[in-house]
Design a protein around this nucleic acid. Structure first.
Length: 424
RNA sequence: GGAUGGGUGCCCGAGAUGGCCAAAGGGAGCGGACUGUAAAUCCGCCGCGUUUCGCUUCGUAGGUUCGAAUCCUACCCCAUCCA
């Protein structure tokens, strides 16, 4: 197993991945390149159903899949309903809390639907995407059979040498037998897909290297050479220049589900990125051509705002569709451009009765501040503006008559903007 | 199993002669100013609430006391050393 940097890929697919910064390490870069060049490759990436929605942290994987599918390869989106019952110890210093099965199954379904936004599931196409849940085959496993068929190919000696387990052991932190099995299950997933779908490649974040390589080796041992050797390739761990993990913003995780994070807020997440990350984000999270990106990134200073707007628009378009992206862009210009027309800005409707400013800003759908106490302090320091002018009195009461047809323009802090309507 | 040290707010980490402790300091975060919805910088906030006051917090459960993060008891967990 090598960790070869791909110097000069011949296949368009690998070249595109490399050009856009998706390649960290590969089990056999030359062979992967050759496979991509030779014809359609079926590959898979696994997602943990730990929540009802994927978030921006999953985007690297999603965009890589999308890119490969566009180069004619076939993606399998595996949602780990089975492995979630175990909990991946990778990168964790502590055991994850166990999730109950109903929650897992609900998450699997929700995440499966989200994959449709990034991948093409049109079955008339030869490389249409497939969605699978490893609970389908893992939960039915017989313990003894599994041990005889799969367990026999693993040595504990080798397993405890891998980074994931090594770290736990070195730090003398408990590693339950349950978790220790995670790697076998993921390796088996790969084998299962190799046999059932002709899947010869697994991609994933760099933290998955150990689990992925375990699958590659398992296939080499038992998979015969049905579809040739299997490979894996990892993506770099994406960190923002300010050190924050990709996918976290001031108001929490950047969910891909519009119900959990509005397209407007999603757009804002990209617009407010650090200058230093613009190029990297454009490459990975938009479909803009590499050459054009290089051109765009020649912009400096305030001109970068335009580039960020482009980034935000393109990224939002992929996740929420063109219409939503247009609307988010319009809303952003309205809300942040000093306009009095906020017609595109998200609106919330409050009951038709007098309401105090303090209660308004902590309203369930606004939640500009985390508590009333915070809200009071922020209001008093001038953080809240109504129709463009600061309102310093938390107790200021709004009567139904104060709400115009198109709503009150509420501005709380740097990012939070809403139109507030009073409805009946 | 034995010995010793320790468990403090989102994180790190002071505080242990009982009151001046909602708890130093740093980081993160938030708000304001300046800007470009960026960065840096400066200022402010940073448990919650019906806010010149009230309530709930310093591993868990009790106890002593007018009063406990600080003392006592039991329990749980962690670190290091011994077996």
């Amino acid at each position: 197993m090598t960790e070869t940097e791909v110097i000069d890929p011949k296949s368009p697919a690998l070249a595109a991945l490399a050009a856009r910064g998706f390649v960290e390490q590969a089990s056999d870069a030359a062979q992967i390149d050759a496979d991509f060049a030779a014809g359609m490759v079926t590959f898979y990436i696994g997602f943990d159903p730990t929540a009802t929605s994927l978030h921006a942290g999953n985007l690297v994987c999603l965009m890589a899949m999308r890119l490969l599918q566009r180069h004619g390869h076939r993606p399998i989106g595996l949602v780990g309903g089975g492995t979630a019952r175990i909990g991946d110890p990778s990168g964790r210093s502590e055991t994850r809390k166990m999730m109950d099965e109903a929650t897992i199954d609900g998450n699997v379904a929700a995440i499966g639907r989200q994959l449709g936004r990034f991948l093409d599931f049109d079955e008339s196409k030869p490389n249409h995407a497939v969605h699978v849940d490893n609970a389908q085959w893992l939960c039915a496993q017989k313990y003894i059979s599994f041990l005889r068929d799969v367990g026999v190919h693993f040595t504990v000696n080798r397993m405890i040498a891998t980074k994931t387990y090594r770290e736990r052991l070195d730090n003398e932190q408990p590693l339950s037998f349950l978790e220790f099995n995670y790697q076998l299950l993921q390796a088996y997933d790969f084998l299962h897909l190799y046999r059932g779908h002709g899947c010869t490649m697994q991609l994933g974040g760099s933290d998955q290297w150990g689990n992925m390589i375990a699958g590659v080796e398992l296939i080499r041992r038992v998979g015969e050479a049905e579809s040739g050797p299997a490979h894996c390739l990892t993506f770099p761990l994406l960190t923002m220049s300010d050190g924050r993990k990709m996918g976290k913003s001031e108001r929490g995780a950047v969910w891909l589900d519009p119900e959990q994070l509005s397209p407007f807020d999603y757009y804002q997440f990209w617009v407010s990125c650090d200058d230093r990350d613009v190029r990297k984000l454009l490459l990975m999270f938009t479909d803009v051509a590499v050459d054009e990106i290089e051109e765009l990134c020649k912009a400096e200073g305030a001109a970068l705002r335009e580039v960020k707007a482009r980034l935000a628009f393109e990224a939002t378009k992929i996740c929420h569709g063109e219409d939503a992206a247009e609307q988010a862009r319009t809303a952003a210009v309205q809300a942040f451009g000093g306009s009095e027309d906020w017609s595109a800005v998200p609106a919330v409707t409050v009951p038709p009765e007098p309401i105090k400013l303090l209660d308004l800003v902590v309203h369930d759908e606004i939640k500009a501040f985390s508590s009333k106490r915070q809200a009071r302090q922020r209001i008093e320091s001038g953080a809240v503006k109504i129709d463009g002018t600061a309102q310093l009195d938390p107790g200021h009461e709004f009567a139904p008559a104060d709400f115009p047809e198109e709503g009150l323009r509420l501005q709380a802090g740097k990012k939070c903007r809403f139109r507030v309507l009073m409805g009946g």
